[in-house]
Write a protein that binds this DNA or RNA. Sequence first.
DNA 1: CGCGACGTTGATTTGCCTCAACGATTGTGG
DNA 2: CCACAATCGTTGAGGCAAATCAACGTCGCG
Lengths: 192, 192
Amino acid sequence: MKTDLIVDNVSKHISLTDEETDLFLSLLIEKKLAKRELLHKVGDVCRNSAFVIEGALKGYTIDNAGGEHVLNFAVADWWIADMYSLFSQKPGVLLIEALADSTVLLLSKENQELLYKQNPKFERFFRILVENALVTNQQRLLDNLSLSAEQRYLNFIKKYPFVLNCAPLHSIASYLGITPEFLSKIRRNIAS
Amino acid sequence: MKTDLIVDNVSKHISLTDEETDLFLSLLIEKKLAKRELLHKVGDVCRNSAFVIEGALKGYTIDNAGGEHVLNFAVADWWIADMYSLFSQKPGVLLIEALADSTVLLLSKENQELLYKQNPKFERFFRILVENALVTNQQRLLDNLSLSAEQRYLNFIKKYPFVLNCAPLHSIASYLGITPEFLSKIRRNIAS
DNA sequence: CGCGACGTTGATTTGCCTCAACGATTGTGG
DNA sequence: CCACAATCGTTGAGGCAAATCAACGTCGCG
């Protein structure tokens, strides 16, 4: 199991002894996903956080009219889950799907709670993780309220250039809150 | 100092002994704000979380064109801060302003860190607080991506009816991502 | 090979914005 | 306690950003 990435990820916010690292790693399960495979679907209770080792995923909803709305992407070194469902243990509202063949490490809700009990450091780590996610989300909300579609797209490719390589354009359009057709027109304008 | 409200708020997520409650309360500072007074402004480093005892506040940005964009409201029993600045201790991006004469309890960043060190329960409490804020934010993002302005307004008055009483309509319009004029027209349609 | 997913283009429509103007409140200095 | 200004909510006319609809070429894949 490739564990360097996740150990580094955790070590960015808390420092672990060798024993703590071993405990943490012992609670993870590796899972491979084929392109288009679902990690989570609407109505299921989300039992795991997923840390991406390789590949890419998207979290999204489907509205009454069948339209897809992308809440987030996740690539290597990112965490993803249906957080509403994970935190509340109620049926989830998201689909989480692999955009390419991917490998993730799963940490179950029970093991996460176990970590919290065993060592407050882990509670600290996940607090910081969620804090950062919240700030990123707030900034995205403000961007959606204040910027044009073209400015949002330019922000996006500056902030997440690597996502351009693994996510189809219509998913990026959905993430930005516009139609694929309009994104196509934006890209034409920028190119010229 | 009126402390029942905040003790209840904390007790929703963790259970405290009398000593822990006393410690927590001893770290709070009461602050009164007049209508239009700022709790935080752009460029300042945010040094406190604020818990609202009475009144109402809004957190917002001002764009290059002078337009106001409301990120969030806070009424009694809610927490508010420039979270980007609070977490990173870098200069903030938000204005936080009292919509009416208000009373808040301030918990400084240092005291918050002190609580974390003294007792992991508090780290747990704030983790859960941020988790809930994140989920609410994600839902709002999805609503903005998938619903019409009218549907967002109807959602808003259903979810936060009490905010209608204390926030001016142009701030609510800004929160919803529309102009005051258009909100006015939506309200006319709904009334008929 | 043939089908479905993807990205693009053009024509048309629409949800929401801009601008300008108007009463009704609120609040504030003289 | 009044006069005047500022804020607030609303209305209508006109405009624009982005959606919708329909069509087409390309590619990867079963």
